[in-house]
Amino acid sequence: MNTIKELYAYRQMIFSLVKKDLRGRYKGSVLGFLWTFINPLLQLVVYTVVFSFILRSNIERYYLYLFVALIPWIFFSSAITVGASSVVAQKDLIKKIYFPRMVIPISYVTSSFVNMLLCFIVIFAVIIVTGAGINFIALLALPVIMAVEYLMALGMALLTSAVTVYFRDMEHILGILSMMWMYMTPIMYDKSIVPDELLPVFNLNPMTHVIECYRTVLYNKAMPDFSSLISAIGFGLFFLILGCLVFSRLQRHFAEEL
């Protein structure tokens, strides 16, 4: 409870770190902030070429099918991989001055989240341009899904960033782990092609539920499956609490370890 109160007091710091991160991300590049949009669009082109012309998936409007899952995934995976080194990256600050340490992963995840929201502009542009259509009622569920994913990503980032301080290999392990995780989540393919024996694993994967929800709303234009949504919320809260507990235990010795 005290932690929440303190974090609220430091909201200006979170805000300014997010701003600094967003502004600094493309600093010095010619296209600057446009990269926020260009990057996912180009990724979309690559995946569409591979899966529509070479591997030939028979999913209708595959580019959209993929896109609505890929953007949320990029946010999640950057939260756990880049987020993991966020605390180590700010070691000068941590060794010098007191502030609630959670501010750092929170800011990082928040700025990635804002980035994802901007990418959603591109998603909606694609939907409108291609005439895929939108279900406005189902769209009401979108903020809930986003919030759940945010909490999940934050929980994971708290966990990985705190562990990385003590164990620097974590950054590299997480790179591989997140790639494996991506292929174990129905992003590029449909869950229906997953063999029955493997289904329990997929159902235990919290991202499966999140991705399914996004896809139902934006691709299938329907309200998300209630059980998927509940599972996603459950996982989200679980990771958040776990992340907070681990982080607050480990943060006591940050200054000495860094």
Partner: peptide, 15 residues
């Protein structure tokens, strides 16, 4: 000034 003061836990209004 804003960034640095925020690290001390000041809100925008206070700064």
């Amino acid at each position: 000034i804003y960034t640095n003061a925020a690290i001390f836990g000041l809100t925008k209004k206070e700064i």
